[in-house]
């Protein structure tokens, strides 16, 4: 929250100090930044103008008290620009250190904090509290087993992702050693959105079909297949192979075009569109007029 302020004071510092060694200077800056941060970020709830209530799903099979799933309410101070992840971190640091959830990058890149927030799959770090109705309800992703609190078992999701063999297998490699493999800009444009997946699992969790059919590849895996199938550098045989995987019973044909995945994808990947295109691709590769 105080990043910008710190950056500004950094610049000032650099201009002023001349005699210190770089290490000293850095340590001093760090201490200063720490102080500033402490002053900037009131930890006390009564210093905030507003507070927001978080209702958080709790479950832990190893703690007798938490064996029965329940919701805990935490009141956290609200500051402008605050995300749901900030609220979760505050709750964990100030109320209950056993509150468990995944997060890492805090900037919608690592894909580890997809949660069910107010009934919709969203990345906690990308969801502004102002955009939500309060109190905010935070639950683990539906249709995955809950391991503890907000942590779900992602193993099955990763299995499906790997089931479409997400790697290149080109027919021919560039002749010269270390020569790059070129792709036309138009082709890059075509697969651009599909490459943005961060493996968060929001789409799979939102999908009604995936909920009913555990073997369904799911939107993310199909999108991953699209990323390679539509890439002109991919080899013909591999493309065939991958289409075979996609047109199986639990492949693209399971999609009922409900658009739930497209709706929740934090990277705005047009998932349904990609699935539909692969359906047509599968039909085309099987149609023979003889």
């Amino acid at each position: 929250m105080s990043t910008q302020v710190t950056e500004k004071s950094d610049e000032k510092e650099e201009a002023e100090s001349t005699e210190q060694s770089p290490g000293e200077r850095r340590r001093e800056e760090k201490a200063k930044r720490q102080q500033e941060k402490e002053a900037e970020t009131p930890e006390l709830i009564d210093e905030a103008d507003e507070t927001v209530e978080l209702k958080i799903f709790r479950f832990d099979p190893e703690v007798p008290d938490k064996e029965e799933p329940r919701f805990d309410s935490f009141t956290v101070p609200y500051f402008e620009g605050m995300t749901v992840l900030d609220g979760l971190i505050y709750s964990r640091d100030n109320y209950d250190s056993s509150l468990t959830f995944r997060h890492s990058c805090r900037q919608a890149v690592c894909g580890s904090d997809a949660l069910l927030i107010n009934g919709t799959q969203r990345l906690a770090c990308k969801t502004q509290m102002v955009d939500l109705e309060w109190p905010i309800r935070v639950e683990p992703l539906p249709h995955q087993d809950v391991v503890k609190d907000l942590v779900v078992d992602m193993e099955h999701f990763y299995e499906q992702m790997n089931a479409v063999e997400p790697y290149f297998d080109p027919d021919e490699l560039p002749e010269e050693d270390r020569e790059e493999q070129k792709q036309r800009p138009e082709n890059r444009e075509k697969i651009k959105l599909s490459t943005r997946c961060i493996w968060c699992g929001a789409c799979m969790s939102s999908c009604n079909v995936a909920a009913g059919d555990n073997e369904y590849l799911g939107p993310a895996a199909i999108n991953k297949a699209y990323r390679f199938a539509m890439d002109e550098r991919e080899g013909g045989d591999k493309k065939e192979d991958r289409l075979r995987i996609l047109e199986q019973e639990h492949g693209v044909w399971r999609c009922q075009t409900q658009f739930s995945c497209t709706e929740v994808c934090p990277k705005d990947i047009p998932l349904t569109e990609h699935i539909q295109e692969l359906k047509r691709e599968a039909v085309k590769s099987n149609l023979k007029f003889w």
Binding site: F59, P61, E62, P69, N118, G119, T120, P142, D145, V146, V147, K148, D153, N208, A211, G212, Q256, T257, Q258, F259, S260, T262, E263, T272
Partner: peptide, 27 residues
């Protein structure tokens, strides 16, 4: 991580308020 909690399929119906246009169209 000895056991996991499966919330079952009933939860889908409980969330009808959050259905998007495409989902309603399907139903």
């Amino acid at each position: 991580m000895s056991s996991t909690y499966d919330r079952g399929t009933v939860e889908n119906f409980g969330r009808w308020r959050e259905f998007s246009a495409g989902m309603w169209a399907w139903v």
